[in-house]
Amino acid sequence: MTRKTTALTLSLMMGATMALSHGDVAPQPVNTDALPDVGEEWLIENPYRAMDPEIYQAAIEIGASGYNQNCARCHGLEVISGGLAPDLRFLEAEEYGDEWFMERFRTGYTQNGVTKMPAFGELLGQKAAWAIRTYVEARPDDEQMAELTPELKELRDQLAAWAENPEGADPEGMTAKLTEFAESIETLSGAPFADSAASRAVIVLDGTVDGYRKAAEALTIGLSAAH
């Protein structure tokens, strides 16, 4: 078995027997106004995956908020499970993985009469569901991130220095380097785009002192979350 297959199989097995009781947590609403409508009938495949990159990125950002409010307690920050719930990062970014995710999201999960996961479907709606799914599938490969961390920290330190003194700064060159890193980072789900520290830094890097500061912060936060 590959790392992805083995990890997903084990996490789903563990989740079936060890998941934390989540029934006492009230689902928190998710503002999805920035996302296009996807219809009333529940879909079986992530619609945002095939849309424009700007929409996919918006879904990631909205999904991050929804995930952190409703899912992180059991499934872990940055979707890195502590072992008591399925590690959703390994859920394939294709129809099978989408169906499994949506079934649990809509109906929840009960074991021996105990609610391990509440039903979020009617409370949060389909747009929120697919936004959270998009955020989950875009998690970067943590082992690859660990390998790249020393080089990304060097870029982070350079950005922090430019934020203090921008003389001699090369934003175009920095953007090119970060973009190269971002494009090389893979997801554990097989999704084509990884929402990594590098990609987040590229988004805010605009050649200004504030942009250097924000990019350095994005790398600091992203690299901290990867460990």
Results as ranks from 00 to 15, higher is better:
Thr2His: 15
Lys4Leu: 09
Thr5Gln: 14
Thr6Leu: 10
Ala7Ile: 11
Thr9Arg: 12
Gly15Pro: 09
Thr17Cys: 08
Met18Cys: 13
Met18Ala: 15
Leu20His: 12
Ser21Ala: 08
Ser21Arg: 12
Ser21Ile: 05
Gly23Val: 00
Gly23Arg: 03
Gly23Ala: 02
Val25Arg: 08
Ala26Cys: 09
Thr32Leu: 04
Asp33Met: 10
Asp33Ala: 14
Pro36Gly: 03
Asp37Arg: 11
Gly39Ile: 10
Ile44Met: 12
Tyr48Ile: 04
Tyr48Pro: 10
Tyr48Ala: 00
Tyr48Ser: 01
Met51Thr: 15
Glu54Pro: 12
Ile55Val: 15
Gln57Ser: 11
Ala58Ile: 08
Ala59Cys: 04
Ala64Tyr: 12
Ala64Cys: 05
Ser65Glu: 13
Ser65Val: 14
Gly66Thr: 09
Cys71Ala: 03
Ala72Phe: 09
Arg73Phe: 10
Arg73Asp: 03
Cys74Leu: 01
Gly76Ala: 03
Gly76Glu: 03
Gly76Leu: 03
Val79Asn: 07
Gly82Thr: 02
Gly83Phe: 07
Leu84Val: 13
Leu84Gln: 14
Pro86Gly: 00
Asp87Lys: 06
Phe90Asp: 01
Leu91Glu: 02
Ala93Ser: 15
Ala93Ile: 07
Glu95Ala: 14
Gly97Lys: 09
Gly97Met: 06
Glu99Pro: 04
Trp100Leu: 11
Phe101Asp: 01
Met102Ile: 14
Phe105Arg: 00
Arg106Gly: 04
Thr107Trp: 10
Gly108Met: 02
Asn112Glu: 00
Gly113Ile: 01
Val114Lys: 00
Thr115Trp: 00
Lys116Glu: 00
Met117Asn: 02
Met117Ser: 00
Ala119Gly: 06
Phe120Asn: 01
Gly121Cys: 04
Gly121Pro: 09
Glu122Cys: 01
Leu123Glu: 15
Leu124Asn: 01
Trp130Asp: 00
Ala131Trp: 06
Ile132Leu: 08
Arg133Asn: 11
Tyr135Gln: 01
Glu137Tyr: 11
Ala138Pro: 13
Pro140Gln: 05
Ala146Asp: 11
Ala146Lys: 08
Thr149Gln: 13
Pro150Phe: 09
Pro150Gly: 02
Glu151Cys: 01
Glu151Gln: 11
Leu152Cys: 06
Leu155Glu: 07
Asp157Glu: 09
Ala160Asn: 10
Ala161Leu: 08
Glu167Gln: 13
Glu167Asn: 10
Asp170Asn: 15
Met174Cys: 05
Thr175Met: 15
Ala176Leu: 09
Lys177Gly: 01
Lys177Tyr: 03
Lys177Phe: 00
Thr179His: 05
Glu180Gln: 09
Phe181Tyr: 14
Phe181Asn: 06
Ser184Val: 05
Thr187Gly: 02
Ser189Lys: 05
Ser189Asp: 03
Gly190Ser: 03
Pro192Ala: 10
Ala197Val: 11
Ser199Thr: 07
Arg200Thr: 08
Arg200Gly: 07
Ile203His: 07
Val204Leu: 05
Val204Arg: 04
Gly207Asp: 06
Thr208Trp: 12
Val209Tyr: 08
Val209Phe: 08
Asp210Pro: 07
Tyr212Lys: 02
Tyr212Gly: 01
Lys214Ile: 08
Lys214Tyr: 08
Ala216Phe: 13
Glu217His: 12
Leu219Phe: 05
Gly222Pro: 11
His227Leu: 06
